[in-house]
Amino acid sequence: MTEIRFHGRGGQGAVIASEILASALFAEGKAVQTFPEFGVERRGAPVQAFLRYDEKPILLRCKVYKPDHIIVLDPVLTKTVNITQGLKPGGWILLNSTQVPKNFRFEGFRMAIVDATSIAIKYRLGAKTAPIVNTAILGAFVKITNLTSLDHIIDGIKEYVPVKLEENIHATKEAYEMVRKI
């Protein structure tokens, strides 16, 4: 079983990202389970979403404590939240950022960055001051992990994203190209 944890802020689309990724993995024939951090969502506050997938049915019904990979939608969270908590050694850290933040330690993990914010702004996803980066970051994640295909992600976007479909797909594809392994 593989577990992925999303870190984001309320309004960035972390939960939808987890659902799109889950549906893409499901399309691969995997068993999936995804859920937000249980509670009351507030715009701008740090949020988490979780995703499990497995070859066999998932029975487990508790939170993800030891994720295999993490996806971080906002680099500032690296300063306020212990984002690598429980992350298994060798796991991917995908960070939405132009560069690796100073003093951020990722020894023993694999690290990749993508400027999903610029891409989202370019395609006018969300407001300029609060861009929605979820679809872009998924393109990057697929590229670095190769867990599923870009097409399945795009199918998921079609199902879960209600507006600006073309723009979101472009953003996903662009991030797929631009993601940089560190």
Partner: peptide, 12 residues
């Protein structure tokens, strides 16, 4: 059904 553990959890 359980709050969140089912209500807000997506699965096939």
């Amino acid at each position: 059904l359980d709050a969140f553990v089912l209500s807000h959890t997506s699965e096939p």
